[in-house]
Structures are given as structure tokens and as C-alpha cells.
Write a protein that binds this DNA or RNA. Structure first.
Length: 659
RNA sequence: GCGCCCGUAGCUCAGCUGGAUAGAGCGCUUGCCUCCGGAGCAAGAGGUCGCAGGUUCGAAUCCUGCCGGGCGUACCA
């Protein structure tokens, strides 16, 4: 509704300016900070003043005087040094909102969102939660905008990290494949949490450069790559079991996936081999014959826009400058780097890997509605078609920008400029630990670390907060609160409510920061249920719901007040401001989609909740004697609830029945 | 060295394409439950928007240079 009005006003002003002054001026509309300045304003006359050589106020006066009526706009006025302020036809606006009028979205092309991507060798931590929440929210936003979206979670099941844990099982614990599988099945053991400690343990050994350990690791890597032998069997058991743990953890906060592409299939099905041929054929990479990277296939730095990093290696004659920024794609031993595999994978996502595709099987044989996982052979006949998108969003933290640049540049250099342009690195800053958080976790910090504002999470060091632990803590904290408020409910009901509150608190926390803000994680902030938090927003929705329930018409059709009734009662400025505050979701969604900033949705939800809570406090709805006014108030409560629900759905924040 | 990001209230952060008197939460001070649930509402104190130039009718926002901090720049992922 708001979008529609903006469009009408913008176009009306633009065509009128063109007709009146013969200038094609882009009309910028903004929502005034002060209510007294109207519902929409434009500073367009300041820009016109320059080219027309007239004072902005005079131009504004001219425009306002003979602009034909704009549907939905009641009045225009000149204000300040030359602003034009517009006021809406309040009755028509509210009526339109209640009818759910909106701009339709056209047919949109398929997008792939890849997120989560946790190495399957240990439990998920808070950094992974930020990734998953951002990714999942992006998915919800794109879908709300009418975009078909496929969600992928890439599983690096043959990499060093899995190899490290396999090595630890074999040599530190002396366990064979059957024993590891038994451990993974043991209901009393959180397998991913077990591996968290095991991984930290063997990492310490590697860090000490223990020669035996390094030899074990090499042996394991080879075994994983070949896919044969007991080490490979342990590797598969570890990776599959941990992926199941990750899916369970993410399932707790409402995050799910369509397909899990695995690195083992990228290798087995020779996706890389195919991409390698393309890269060679189109001279995107070259075989280095001398220097530091002799024997490697490298991508020249210029291809991905990195400045060739020249460092003087000799006496500085200028002739023996070494270019160091070239990126190795294939190592001198012939194995492919991670980027290489990522290039192949990215090509497949766009349907550019001719003749290559995965086969798919349900990840859990018993669960047909769960995600599909890639297999090399023997896939299901009824698997959907995956891949082949026209736009790809890779949700990965900002530290991987360099590698993402290389992937994007490869597509460009291979002759796929459109796909390169539509390869979006949806980046975000890391979640680190605040000094206080480290103290609470009993982590000892070095002098250098103590002087910093935050400490980086490190899976290798076992330094971090596990996702499940944080969730458990949130649930138990919420449960105490719920139980103290609801003596009438049994424990299971309280638990269910506490879980929804915990999810809301967590997801809102991860979304309220803009993407390039480093989150210095702090338990006190993350566990807060008051102020700008998920539970605050949830509470506003619960209040709205309670009013509607008690009004006597919980689910039946609400009596719709007439336009005149709206117009009359919305003369109350406070009520009108509330209606405006709870009608922003659509324009917020469009704006957040364009800027790729889910935090805007969170902010809008908080502001809508704030506006509603204020209204709730000063207006008694159910005791209102004037039935006409009561109907209008109830209709506004309905609008507020719908708006809050819409915004919370975008964020994946549950809307509890009560709390 | 090179590349990217950040610096706004005591703390944590918003501030959309430059626009009217720079906003919120927390913390602090003070009010508010005979009425739809107080996870709430209202009010107050608190800011040379890192510094210096520049562009502009107008700069927290754009440009340049400094200062301070972070992250990249692996034949790890």
C-alpha cells in the first residue's frame, strides 16, 4: 500500500516536472522524521533550483499549485526552504491496508542460496549460527519477493578438517570404523560435541609439529581422497554423523535445506576434471614452469583484479621482481585446491558444466520431506531437478572475500560475464568473543589478546560457544521466566513456549547487527529478553493476539470499518502514526532486498512493536464504549498483528500463541 | 607493502539513493498496575558523528590526506 502510494506520487511529480519545466528529474521520496512534516516528503525542488535558476520554494509552490490530483494523496504543501510534503487520504489508506492491496511481483528467475557450509568434523558454533540465520533470512526474503529459491548446504567431507578428526579417532583413541559408528549412534553421546574436543586435542598435536602426527594426517588425507580403506570408512561415518548433528541443530531454529552437495561427489563425478578442461581451453589458468609456484596451474592475479604484488627480491634492479599474487588452482602434486573445486561447483550451480550432474538420495532414508544429498550413483528416480539457477548467493563470512573474488573472476574469464555478475558473495563479519565472554568461559587470554576488543572464535583451539549450548541456555533462561508467569501451564507447554522465545531471541540477535559489523559475543546481551530483542517483538504480537481473542471474534471475519469511519477516527494523530508504523513491511522488504541487509527487517519489526506497545498502553480497546471507534481500534490491532507476523516470518522468529 | 572493512551518547549499535532539530537499546535518575498480561509505558541526564581539508544551497553520509583498530593477501578450508 505504501509502495503503491510512493509510486503514484513519484510518477505524478516526475511527469509534471517534465511537462512544466522540460526537465527529467529523478524524484526522491523520504519519510519525514517529524510527523508534522507529513507522510511523505521530497526535496526535489532543491535540485531543480539549480537548473531553473529560481528559488526552491517558488518552484515548490508552482508544482503544488497545479499538480493534478494524485490518487491516495489528500494534500500537498510547501514547507521549509522548499520541501513538498504530502499527506495521505487516511481513510483510503487504512481501507487499502485492510484489504491487503499491494503491488504484484512478476515472474522471477530461480536463485540458489548456499549457506551454513560447516566443516563436518565438530559441533556448530555461534559463528555458524550467524551464517545460517542470515542465509535462511535471505531465503525467506527472496521467497517473499516472489523468487523461486533453492537452498544448498555444501558439505566438505573430504577436507583436512575431517581428516584431522579421523586421524584422532584412529591414532589418539585407537578406534576402528565400527567403534566410531557405534559411538556416533550412542544416544548418550553428543557426537559433534565429542568431536569438538577431539579436534582441539589433535590440533594441539599438529601445532607442536609432532612428526608422527603429521605423517598420520598425510596418510588419512590420501585415504579420504581415494575413498577406500578403513580410514575412508571412518571419514564417511564422521562426516555423515556430524552433518546429521548440524541439521538437527539448525532444525531447532527453523533452518532447513533443499540439497546437500558433497565434495566427495564433486570429485567422484569428475566435476573438477570437466572444469579444469574449460579453464585450460580458455587460457584462464596456466602451467607455471619456474619460480615459487613451478609445476602449479595458476590464475594470474590480474584475472581477479588483485594488484600484482611486486616485492623486490634482489638488489632492486627492477628486472627480477616476483609476482606473488597469482592464485594456485592446481598444486604441483596435481591435486586441486579448494578454490578449484568451488569454481566447478559454481559452474554447476549456473548449469554451465555441460553433461555433468549429481544423482540424489534422501539424506535420511526414513524422511522423504528432508533434504536430498548428492550421490555418485544409484540416486533416486523421483529426485527433483537441482542447480541451474540464474543467480547465486554464497553466504560466507567476509574473510573469504579473496576466494570468492577468484571464483567470480573465473566465470568472467571463462566467458560467462552475466553469471559472474550474478554471483553474489553475501558476506558478513565474524562473530567473535567479548573479553567478558572469554572470562566466563574460563579462557585464559594472552596479554596481547586482552588488549583487543574481541577474540576470534577458533574451532582448532576449541575456543568458542557451541550453538547447542547457547540454545540450551536460552531455553532454560526463558523457561524460568515462563514458569514464573504461568502456574496454570504444565511443564511441556512451558517448555514449548520457552523454545519459541529462545529461537526468537537468538534469531533476532543475529539479525539486529548489520552484516559488516563484527559481533563481539556476550552472554548478557544474547540472553537479554528486554529492550531491542526478539521476545520484545514477540510480546507485542502476543498482546495483539490476546486483544483479538478477547474481543469475541477470534477467527471469524472481522467487521471492517468503512472508509469514512477510518477517516474520522484516524484524525487522531497518534492512531494515524501507528497505522503508518505498522504498514512498512512491504517497502522494508523491497529496500532490504535491494541493499541485501536483513537488519532493516529486524529494525522495522522492532519499531512496529514499539509503536504498538505504546498504543496498547495508552488506549483501552476492549472497554471502548463507542462501537464505531472500537471497531476501528480492533481493525488497527489486526493490522498490527498481521504486520508483526509478516516481519517475524521474514526473520524466522516464531509468533507464540502466548508467552 | 597491497586490498577490503570499521571509527556516531558511559556501553552495544541504527542512520536507506547527500536533506528539515543526529536516533534506538542497555546502564543511570524519576514517575506509571481499581482497567486488554509490567518481557511493558512515559520523562530526564548524556553527542566537537576519529582529525584536517575539499565538493555542495545543504555532509555522519561523497572526495583527498592523516590518526587509530580489524580482516584478508597459503601448493589450509
Amino acid at each position: 500500500m505504501l509502495l503503491r502510494l510512493e509510486k503514484h506520487l513519484r510518477e505524478a511529480l516526475r511527469t509534471h516536472i517534465a511537462k512544466r519545466f522540460g526537465v527529467d528529474e529523478d524524484v526522491v521520496l523520504e519519510q519525514p522524521k517529524q510527523a508534522g512534516h507529513g507522510d511523505l516528503a521530497t526535496p526535489v525542488c532543491f535540485g531543480l533550483a539549480r537548473s531553473l535558476r529560481r528559488p526552491p520554494r517558488m518552484i515548490a509552490a508552482d508544482l503544488v499549485a497545479d499538480l493534478p490530483p494524485v490518487p491516495g494523496i489528500e494534500s500537498l504543501e510547501v514547507a521549509g526552504a522548499g520541501y513538498i510534503n504530502a499527506r495521505f487520504d487516511r481513510g483510503a489508506y487504512a481501507e487499502g491496508l485492510l484489504a491487503g492491496e499491494d503491488e504484484p511481483c512478476g515472474e522471477l528467475s530461480k536463485a540458489i542460496v548456499e549457506h551454513t557450509n560447516i566443516n563436518p568434523n565438530k559441533a556448530a558454533h555461534i559463528g555458524h549460527l550467524r551464517n545460517a540465520v542470515l542465509g535462511d533470512t535471505l531465503v525467506r526474503m527472496l521467497r517473499a519477493l516472489g523468487r523461486p529459491v533453492e537452498v544448498q548446504n555444501y558439505i566438505d567431507n573430504t577436507g583436512v578438517q575431517v581428516a584431522d578428526v579421523v586421524t584422532a579417532f584412529r591414532h589418539l583413541r585407537g578406534m576402528g570404523a565400527e567403534q566410531v559408528k557405534a559411538l556416533a549412534r550412542d544416544p548418550d553421546v553428543a557426537f559433534d560435541h565429542y568431536c569438538w574436543d577431539l579436534y582441539a586435542e589433535i590440533s594441539r598435536l599438529f601445532a607442536s609439529k609432532d612428526p608422527a602426527a603429521l605423517a598420520w594426517r598425510g596418510e588419512t588425507l590420501k585415504a579420504l581422497e581415494s575413498g577406500e580403506g578403513e580410514l575412508a570408512e571412518i571419514g564417511a561415518a564422521v562426516a555423515d554423523s556430524i552433518v546429521a548433528c548440524h541439521l538437527a541443530t539448525m532444525g531447532r531454529i527453523g533452518v532447513s535445506y533443499d540439497v546437500l552437495p558433497r565434495e566427495s561427489e564433486i570429485l567422484n563425478l569428475r566435476f573438477w576434471a570437466s572444469a579444469f578442461e574449460m579453464l585450460k581451453a580458455r587460457n584462464v589458468i596456466r602451467l607455471e614452469t619456474s619460480g615459487r609456484t613451478a609445476g602449479c596451474w595458476v590464475m594470474p592475479a590480474a584475472t581477479f583484479g588483485a594488484a600484482p604484488n611486486r616485492r623486490e627480491s634482489g638488489q632492486g634492479t627492477g628486472s627480477d621482481l616476483e609476482v606473488e599474487a597469482d592464485k594456485v588452482i592446481v598444486r604441483s602434486d596435481g591435486t586441486v585446491t579448494y578454490v578449484g573445486k568451488d569454481i566447478a561447483y559454481q559452474l554447476w550451480k549456473f548449469g554451465l558444466l555441460e553433461g555433468k550432474d549429481f544423482e540424489y538420495a534422501p539424506f535420511r532414508a526414513s524422511d522423504a520431506s528432508g533434504p536430498w544429498v548428492t550421490t555418485a550413483e544409484g540416486g533416486s528416480e523421483c529426485a527433483p531437478q537441482f542447480g541451474g539457477a540464474s543467480e547465486v548467493f554464497n553466504v560466507i563470512d567476509v574473510r573469504q572475500s579473496y576466494l570468492q573474488d577468484v571464483v567470480r573472476a573465473s566465470l568472467q574469464a571463462l566467458g560467462f560475464p552475466e553469471q559472474a555478475q550474478r554471483s553474489v558473495h553475501f558476506s558478513y563479519e565474524m562473530v567473535a568473543l567479548s573479553p567478558r565472554c572469554c572470562a566466563e568461559l574460563g579462557i585464559e587470554l594472552s596479554k596481547k589478546e586482552r588488549s583487543r576488543p574481541y577474540v576470534e572464535v577458533s574451532g582448532r583451539k576449541g575456543l568458542g560457544v557451541k550453538a547447542d549450548d547457547l540454545l540450551d541456555l536460552l531455553v532454560s533462561t526463558a523457561l524460568q521466566e515462563v514458569e514464573s508467569r504461568h502456574e496454570d501451564l504444565d511443564r511441556a507447554e512451558c517448555w514449548a513456549i520457552a523454545e519459541r522465545i529462545a529461537i526468537g531471541a537468538l534469531r533476532y540477535f543475529m539479525l539486529r547487527f548489520t552484516r559488516n559489523t563484527v559481533i563481539a559475543f556476550d552472554f548478557q546481551e544474547a540472553l537479554a529478553f528486554e529492550g531491542e530483542t526478539g521476545p520484545y517483538v514477540q510480546y507485542a504480537a502476543v498482546r495483539a493476539r490476546n486483544i483479538l481473542r478477547k474481543s469475541g471474534q477470534p477467527c471469524g471475519p472481522d467487521p471492517k470499518p468503512s472508509r469514512e469511519a477510518f477517516a474520522r477516527h484516524l484524525q487522531d494523530e497518534q492512531l494515524w502514526q501507528l497505522v503508518l508504523a505498522v504498514s512498512q513491511s512491504r517497502s522494508t522488504l523491497v529496500r532490504a532486498g535491494q541493499s541485501g541487509e536483513p537488519a532493516q527487517v529486524a529494525r522495522n519489526a522492532f519499531q512496529a512493536a514499539q509503536a504498538f506497545n505504546n498504543f496498547y498502553h495508552q488506549t483501552h480497546i476492549l472497554t471502548e464504549k463507542d462501537t464505531g471507534r472500537r471497531a476501528v481500534l480492533l481493525a488497527i490491532v489486526r493490522l498490527a498483528l498481521d504486520e508483526l507476523t509478516c516481519l517475524m516470518d521474514l526473520m524466522g522468529v516464531p509468533v507464540p500463541e502466548r508467552m
